[in-house]
Structures are given as C-alpha cells and as structure tokens.
Design a protein around this nucleic acid. Structure first.
Lengths: 331, 331
DNA sequence: GTCACGATTGGAAGCGTTTCCAAAAAGCCT
DNA sequence: AGGCTTTTTGGAAACGCTTCCAATCGTGAC
C-alpha cells in the first residue's frame, strides 16, 4: 500500500480512501491512484483489514452432523448467499455435544467471526443458552426457539405433521407411531404437537406408548421401531420425525418381515432421495432447505449492517407429500 | 496483552514468550505470567497473530457440489481432523465452473488460508492447472492427478470397477453400459480404464456405444440411460460411475418399465443410503470417505509444518460389494 | 574480586490497514 | 483582493501481536 502511495505520489490515507469507495477524493487523484493500483497489481490484505475493522468477512455454521444431506443442502445454500457478498463460510459438526458447542462458539467469537448459524443440540442447557444469548457475535438459530432474543429461521413442522397424521387417521389408522429425536429441541416439540393436534382435531386420543422421542441415531430408531412392530398391538402407521431416520425405519420394517404399505404405512419427517426412489415411494413432510439457508445468510448479513435491529424470526412452511407408502389401515 | 504484562510486572515480550510455548523463560516468571493471564482471562487475538505470523489456522475445501452426501462426509471427516489441531475449515461449492475455481483459489490465497483441498472440475484447463501448480498456499488434490507437483489423495476406482465389471461378465452380461461424468477428470478416466481392463481380462471387447461419459448431472444420466434402454440392443447391465447418479438411473429404469435385476443389473459407483435400502439393494463400488478426509487434512497439516517436503500421493482402495441388483444376464 | 559467558528480560519495530486530525488547496462571496 | 467555508490531502496513531536487539542478571572459573 505504501508502494502504491509512492507510485501515485500521494499519501497512504488517500490510497485507502480510494480503495474503500473513495469518499472525498478528487477525480484526478482517484484516477492516478487507481492506475497505480493496477500497475502494481495491488490487493488490500484482508487480514490487516480485519485487524483494524474487527470484521472478518466470515460466517460459521454449527450443526449436529453436517454430513446429513438435508443439513449439507442448507449449508450449501447459505454458502452461496454469503459468497455473493464476499463472505466465507466455516463449518463444524457438534455431534450433539453441548459442551463442544459452547467451546466452538467461544472459539469462533475469539476469531472475530462476523456471524454464526447454529442448530444447537439443546434448548434447555443453561450454559449453552447463556452463551448464545449473551454472544457478542450475531447468531441465527436454525429451527430453535430458545433463547428468544436472537434471530431464527424456523420450519413449520407442526402444520406438516398435522396434515400427515390427519391423512393417516382418515385412512383409518388409529395406532400411529411417532418417532423423533431428543425432546427439548424445537423440531421434536413441534412434531409431537402437530401429531397431537391431528388426533384432537378428529376427536381422538393418541396411544401414548407409541410416541417414542429419544434420539436421532439410527440405532435408537431401529430398535424402537422393531420393538413396536413386534409387540402385540403394533402400530399400523409410522411417522419418522427426523431428517435421517427413514433408513433405519425401513430396515426395521423389512427385518420384522412386514410390507409397506399393506402392513404398515410410513411417513418420513423430511424428503430425501431414498424416500423418492424407494419401492414403494415414501410420503414425506418437506420444506425448502435452500431457501432456509439463503434466509439464514441474509439474516446474518443484515445483522452485520445493523447490530441493534429488532430480533427477526422467519417461519418456513412445510407441505405433506403423499406417496405410495400410505395406504388404508389393515383390518 | 499489555494489561497482562503490567499485571505480571513484566514486559510484553515475556508474555508473548510464555504464551507461545515459553522458550527461555524462568520458572518463576512463567508462573507469574500464567497467573496474570488466568486472572485477566486473557486470550491472544488470532487475527493479530495471523497478521504477524502469516498463518491463519484455517483450511478450505472446494468441491463440485458439497451437498452431495459423499462429499459432505469427506468434508466432515476433514473438519474433524483439522479441528483437533485448532484449524478451522471453510467450504465452497464450485458447481463445475473452472473460472469460479480460479477466482476462489485466488481469493483464498489472498486471505492467507493455510491450505486448500480441491476436487478441481478440470484437469486440462491451462489456467486452472497453472493456478494450482504455482499456488503459494499448499494444495491437496482430491481424486485428481494433475498437476502432479502437488499432494493428492486418490481413490482406486479402477480396481473396484474392474472387479465389478468382471463379475457382471461372469454373470453372462456382455452389453454393459458405462455411465460417468465429463472425461478429463481422473475418476472418469480410471473408471473407464477399469471397465476396459475387465473386458480384456476376459478376452472380450466392450460395445463402444454403451460408454457414455459426459456429465454427472441427473438430467444427463436419466436421458442417456432411458435412451440406451429403449434402443434395439439394450444393455443388460449398467454401471453408474458417479457419486450421485444412482437415483437418476433407477428413475430411468423404472420409467422405461424394466425390472432390476431381472431385466437389467445395476452397479453404482459409490455407496449410499439409497443403494443400501432400495428394493432390490444395489451393488456398489465403495471406499472409506472418512479416512480420505482425514488423510487430506493430515497432508495439509504436515505441509504447514514443512512447506518443502516431497510431494505425497496416497491411493485409497475400493471394494466391490455385490447386492441384489446383480443377476444373471437375461437370455 | 573480576571476568566472561549464557540465560533471561524489556521494549521498540513492524506486520498492512483505517481513521483521525491538522494543514493545504480550492471555491465562494463581498 | 481578502476573508470565509468547504473540500481534499498527508501522515501519525492505533489495532494486538511476534521478534529482534540490546541490556541486565546470574553463575562458575580464575
């Protein structure tokens, strides 16, 4: 930069002014400086800029496991949106470890990251809530309600599940299993709420023992599914409310020796290649992850502009897509 | 940092020495400084450190489309490995745009990223090759041969495909379609080579019109598959040599009205949930993406230590997993 | 007690920017 | 032309660290 100043015969301050949009620089000077910049092929050093400005032009995204297709699609969309504004995107998987998330948040803050999107693993852990809610760096929650003083992009699982379960009820199903992850995160709460709403909208009561919320892991899903299907009064339909649960559910059904949809109807909590191409094709509740990712990035971008804007929440709709996996309840 | 120095009654230089492993610091001094650090809860600013040292403790990964499950698994493993050494990982999708890759590489270099893993979209583009091979920042190629003066982690597609195609030949298949992406990247070259090797190992010649390499996109795969299957002498087996091609192949087979494996046998070029859970289950050539990701990260880490070490290449084995989708050739 | 040498230490310089302030230049008005 | 205001400009200070050099301290040998 000093070189450019010298080359153009001006002071370093002037060069800086030209580089940054050039307020208050006379036309001839600007042209002279720009010529010098081109001649020396000068590029301002982002690190030095960060040093002064405190901005790093970098966002981060923390999710449970970012090799889950739906999450990587989200991250991908986020990256694309951030990219056009010159922001980079850093990623990290937390593997459901709350303490790890706290450590990551702190490390990112120290690195002066400009914004973080997180799908936290718990909405009850005091330490995590405190860390998030008092964070210096802007945070956007991905499908989480708490803490409520930060921006969030949300998915309306409730409506989608309600529609799906209503459909199953209308097909004559009464024993409908509800599988989902650990209670205490919003997607699970909302899904269960939608499930209950569907029953009460038809004046019915769900069988409580068929509501199995505990973990998103394949092992949990497989064993719960198999156990329910082997029991006396087995469910005639299963709603699998997780993004990567479908595989385990289908394996369990197959291993127990039942058929979809003749013996058991299936609805998945998120769309996937598997759901679309399985034989039979699997009904799903779906939403637009790419729009969600883009929105999250835009939230962060606008926070960078204005730190003290009012908190924003955005709820994305879901839709129930019925495919071949839903049939009438066996008699 | 000044505060810490004052608190401990030492000079800033001494504090720095304590923070960085503390060579040449007396025991009492070190203890005093460490106490002060704890008391003031001091953390060195990574940006300022980068400013001086030129190291950013950050890697980046550029892939075609990083919402492809296999790639996100790779990135995930890479992130985990980098993380334990305190390195962050930045991601970006190139969407097969060579120019975009060049721009990204340059931008990352300017940001003084410490290392880059790239699965470049072309091994022939002069500009890209030049950019990579002359890069200041260490680069590791993901399954690419060129340029050959940089480190690379490679997958032995050739052996896996050879085994798979040999198996198909032994099942009586002669018209075996070979689908893959754009020629000119290593995975495609190697797969085609493996395919040919299998034929010649049995003293046979492949039907050239069944070798369809052009693009990894679903549209291409779908239309090529459908077209071949509708033709007079249709293939009795299909090898789909891409990481995300299987879905399109299966759709095409279904739409043409054929059955797997009675009418056509299928082998996928990479493992996936879909392959494992489809009915019938789909044979695959598979490898350990997590080990690949970890190795890539380790390559970068060791480059950071020693920029001028000899070039390293590492080839990961593949295995052919036969599942239900492979049957005897129809007569 | 003196000297030499190695181990420690303090603090200034520098990394490449931005920003601020004062000074110079340029307009404008009478 | 002189006195104003406004615009433009140069350059020092600061961001938070590392590193280097010179200075100080301590130790053992003579």
């Amino acid at each position: 930069m000093k070189d450019v100043a010298e080359e153009a015969g001006v002071g370093v301050g002037t060069v800086s002014r030209v580089v940054n949009g050039g307020t208050n620089v006379s036309l001839k000077t600007r042209e002279r400086v720009e010529a010098a910049i081109r001649r020396l092929n000068f590029n301002p050093d982002p690190i030095a800029q960060s040093m002064r400005s405190g901005q790093t032009k970098m966002f981060a995204c923390i999710v449970r496991d970012f090799s889950v297709p739906i999450l990587s699609m989200f991250v991908n969309a986020m990256q694309d949106t951030a990219d056009v504004s010159g922001f980079g995107l850093q990623v990290a998987s937390s593997y459901h470890d709350t303490d790890r998330e706290i450590v990551m948040l702190e490390r990112l803050a120290r690195r002066r990251i400009d914004g973080i999107v997180i799908a936290s693993s718990s909405e009850t852990d005091e330490g995590l809530l405190e860390t998030i809610s008092s964070s210096e760096v802007p945070i956007v929650l991905l499908d989480r309600d708490k803490p409520d003083n930060v921006d969030a992009v949300l998915i309306d699982h409730r409506a989608g599940v309600r529609t799906a379960v209503q459909r199953l009820l209308d097909l004559g199903h009464r024993r409908i299993a509800m599988l989902s992850g650990q209670k205490g995160v919003r997607p699970v709460r909302e899904r269960v709420a939608g499930y209950r709403e569907a029953f009460s909208s038809r004046g019915l009561e769900p069988a409580e023992e068929l509501i199995r919320c505990g973990s998103f892991t394949p092992d949990f899903v497989y064993s719960e599914t198999a156990q329910m299907l082997r029991s006396e009064a087995r469910p005639t339909a299963i709603y699998a409310g997780g993004t990567a649960m479908l595989a385990a559910v289908l394996r369990a059904i197959r291993d127990v020796g039942l058929r979809v949809p003749q013996d058991v109807s299936v609805v998945a909590g998120a769309d996937s290649e598997l759901a679309l191409l399985h034989t039979p094709t699997i009904s799903v509740v779906r939403w637009q992850h790419d729009q969600l990712g883009a929105a999250a990035a835009r939230f962060l971008l606008s926070r960078v502009e204005n730190r003290k804007a009012p908190v924003q929440k955005m709820i994305f709709p879901t839709e129930f897509i019925q495919r071949e996996s839903c049939g009438p309840a066996p008699s």
